[in-house]
Design a protein around this nucleic acid. Structure first.
Lengths: 155, 155
DNA sequence: TTCTTTTTGTTGACACATAGACAATCGACT
DNA sequence: AGTCGATTGTCTATGTGTCAACAAAAAGAA
């Protein structure tokens, strides 16, 4: 409420802890995906592509994963070199590609995904479903708070 | 529990939402700190240095901020160029520096910090202190779960 | 003391992220 | 049809992160 607070408060602590926890998840996921020589970002791309059997454009990927389109170029370059994705022609739009998973990628994901879902459950050992649903709601509310605050910022 | 789950579950949803929320906070903070031409990482370094009036070493900074020491080199290089930190000699250890804030940095932080704490409270508008304390505890528990899981991973 | 191991900071190579400028293409409008 | 603004992907520059290899210095062992 007090937009010119001079000292850190309880909410500030919660915010910091949220960032800390998220970073620890991200770091653990780096080690986890390294088992298959993947980065978390690479996995995210492959995971999104699973939902698009006919392929999707790079700009669409950039929107889904909230990253700049110039970043997608490099990510797809590296995944293409590893033969995990392919750039197919897009008959509807000659500016864009249709990015698709290769057979190798499907085989890789069949291996990774069960371990991936299992890992999420392992991390939450001792949490009831109810509790993690409540947590999700809480986090969504915070995300809305952040979005609201961001609008007050000079862009 | 079930370490070989085949499908995403409630816990998985919560984990994803945690990462999403954290990313939205980080992105908002980029816009926020941009008002003073700072990156979130640069601010974090300055903020840590406030607690060390006599300076601290780069390796100590890397441990506090959980980043590689080679990254600290570049961060301090850029902050030094902007005259926000200085590398002072360390009489106790001629390998290391004592990194200290400059007067300019103190002046900058006097401007940033109130807005910073205020922003945290603004994001949590509508949250009681009790609720954000509970959230903090929840997040700490998850962080422990992550650490536990990470230990089961091949390093 | 001397020998060995560890630690500190830098460097180079790379991955991942942004922003801005650019060419090719698309789409809408006249 | 032709024109003009928006979109798509790439390129360059830069910041932030990792890791491995290196020199200098410190710390420990003999």
């Amino acid at each position: 409420m007090n937009a010119s607070a001079i000292e850190p408060g309880t909410h500030y602590e919660a915010l910091l802890q949220l960032l800390r926890t998220s970073e620890s998840i991200w770091n653990a996921s780096r080690v986890f995906f390294d088992q298959w020589n993947l980065s978390p970002s690479q996995f995210n791309i492959l995971n999104v592509l699973r939902d698009h059997p006919d392929g999707t454009t790079q700009i669409e990927l950039s929107r889904t994963l909230i990253m700049h389109r110039s970043n997608v170029t490099g990510m797809i370059d590296r995944l293409e070199q590893r033969r995990l994705v392919a750039r197919r022609d897009n008959p509807d739009d000659r500016r864009a590609y249709r990015i698709v998973l290769t057979k190798d990628a499907h085989k890789l994901l069949d291996e990774v995904l069960p371990a991936y879902y299992g890992a999420a459950e392992a991390v939450f050992a001792g949490f009831s479903r109810k509790r993690s649903r409540e947590l999700t709601d809480e986090l969504v509310a915070i995300e809305r708070g952040v979005a609201g605050f961001a609008e007050t910022l000079p862009r």
